[in-house]
Design a protein around this nucleic acid. Structure first.
Lengths: 247, 247
DNA sequence: TAAATAGTGTCTATAAGACACTATTCT
DNA sequence: AGAATAGTGTCTTATAGACACTATTTA
C-alpha cells in the first residue's frame, strides 16, 4: 500500500476507472442461464455484455454489485460473491477500466427483469448457447465464472442461491444437473444430501401434477462453506466410464 | 460495463486509486512466513503492512503485482495468483483506494530481501506470530490469504511454489505441515504423493548430516489444478471452522 | 556404535458410484 | 386404470487415516 519514497500523495497517480460486473445466474427450464445486456452504444454496439456499472465513490465494491443487480433484475437478496478483478490495459477501448466481477445466484422464481431494462435490451441465455463473442473481454469473464461455479458446486451449499425458499429434492437435483451439465443418480444424490446436514423438511408438499413431494429448506445454521464434496472425484485414471446412468 | 443511458463518457465518473498488494509467503525454519513492510509515513506510520503499490496505467494487474514482488524481494519467478479485491470506502484514510491483492509463493532458498528495501523496513513474520494489528485493513487481507492458502493446499500442487527446484519428500511434507499448521503422518503423506503423479525422482540425493534422501521435482506436464484432495476431509462432525472473510 | 533421518505395509472405516423396483397421487 | 413422479437399499471399490518398525549414512 506504499512504496514510493515516504512523502508522496496517492492523488498524484493516474487513476483508472473501476466498474463492477455482475454475472447473474439463474435456472430456467432446468438449464443454467446467464443474464446479458445488449449494448446500445460504441464500443461493441449491438453486442451482448455482462451487466455492470461504475463504482461510486461512497459505496463498497459489494454494495456496487448489489446495486447493479437490483437495477437489472429487481432482486434484492441474492447470493453474491466476488469472482475476480480483470484489468488488462486495452480491455476497454475508451480508457483504462478495471472491473471487479461478481457472481450472483438468484432463484428461478424471482426472475422478473426490471422495467428499467426494457426487454429488448436484456435476455437470459443458456450457458451453453451464449452469443459469442460477447463485448469487451466478457466471454473470458463468463467462462471464468462458469468454471468457478462448477468447482464450487461440489463442495458447498451453493445450490441455495438458485433455489426458492422451499423446494423438492428433485428440484435441487436439477440445479446440480444444470450446473454440472450432466445427469446424476437420484438415489446417490439423496444419500449425499442426507449425509450433509444442509437441508431439512419444510412445511407442506409440492403441489404436483401427480404425486406430491416433500418440501425442504436449507437449515439456517448451516455453515455456507461445508467441506463436503461430491460427484466427480476424478478418482478414475483415464478412461472414465461415465456417460450416464438411467433406470 | 455500461448502464447509464447510451451517450456518456466513462471519464466523467470519479475515479478511485487502484493498488495491488502482494502477500508474499515463504517457508523459513519450517514455518510459514509472510513478508511485511514497515510504514515510514502517515497514515499508520511505524506499523507493518503488506507490500504493494499503485497500478500504472499501462500495466496489467498481474504485471503490477509481479513488479511489486520483484521490487521487494528481487524474485522474478514466483507462483502468483489473484486473491481478492478489497475496496471499502474508508479503508485508506487519505482517499478512496481499491486494492487488488495477490498471493505470491516463493521457495525458501530464494529469500534475499532487496537492497531497495533496507532491512529495518522489511521483515519476515511467522504467520502465527504476526504483529497485530497491521496497517489499513491488512490484517483482514492477510487472514483471507491464509485461509485461501490452506483451502487450496489440499487440492493442488500449490506446494510447488514454496519448494526449490528439487527437494526431498520430507521437505515437501514440511511445507504441508507449515501451511496447515499441523503434523501429518509420514507414510500416509508419501502414499498420497505417490498416488498423484505430481512429482518424480530427480538426479542426486540430499547432502545430509545423516542418511541422504532421494530428491524429487515436480513433473513438468503436471496439470497445476489436479483435482485430488487430502488431509482434513472434514468428515468428522463438528463445525469445521473457516476463518474466511466476506466482502 | 550411536545419532539421525530415510523409507516402508496393513488394516479399518467411510464415501462414491452403479444399479431397479415399489408407492402415491392425479386425471 | 394408466400416467407421472416420489421415494427407497445393497454392493463394490477407492480413499483417508491410524499405526511402528527396519535401513542407511555420518560423526
Amino acid at each position: 500500500m506504499e512504496n514510493p519514497a515516504p512523502p508522496y500523495n496517492p492523488a498524484d497517480f493516474d487513476r483508472p476507472s473501476v466498474t463492477v460486473d455482475v454475472i447473474i445466474f439463474s435456472l430456467r427450464a432446468k438449464r443454467l442461464h446467464a443474464l446479458l445486456i445488449r449494448r446500445g452504444a460504441w464500443p461493441f454496439e449491438g453486442q451482448w455484455a455482462i451487466p455492470g456499472g461504475f463504482v461510486r465513490m461512497d459505496e463498497s465494491l459489494e454494495d456496487a454489485a448489489r446495486r447493479e443487480l437490483r437495477e437489472e433484475t429487481g432482486v434484492d437478496q441474492a447470493q453474491l460473491e466476488q469472482l475476480h478483478a480483470f484489468g488488462d490495459p486495452g480491455r476497454d477501448p475508451r480508457m483504462r477500466i478495471i472491473t471487479v466481477s461478481y457472481t450472483a445466484l438468484i432463484p428461478s422464481d424471482h426472475v422478473t427483469l426490471q422495467a428499467a431494462t426494457d426487454a429488448s435490451d436484456a435476455g437470459w441465455f443458456a450457458v451453453d448457447e451464449l452469443p459469442r463473442p460477447l463485448a469487451f473481454d466478457h466471454s473470458r469473464i463468463l467462462d471464468f465464472a462458469l468454471a468457478r461455479l462448477r468447482e464450487r458446486l461440489q463442495n458447498s451449499n451453493l445450490a441455495r442461491g438458485l433455489l426458492p425458499e422451499s423446494f423438492t429434492l428433485t428440484q435441487m437435483q436439477e440445479v446440480y444437473e444444470a450446473v454440472l451439465g450432466k445427469t446424476v443418480d437420484k438415489r446417490n444424490f439423496r444419500k449425499w444430501v442426507a449425509s450433509l446436514r444442509l437441508v431439512e423438511p419444510a412445511e407442506g408438499r409440492s403441489t404436483g401434477r401427480h404425486r406430491p413431494a416433500q418440501l425442504y429448506r436449507f437449515t439456517l445454521d448451516a455453515d455456507p462453506e461445508r467441506g463436503f464434496l461430491w460427484a466427480t472425484r476424478t478418482r478414475g485414471r483415464g478412461a472414465a466410464s461415465k456417460t450416464d446412468a438411467q433406470d
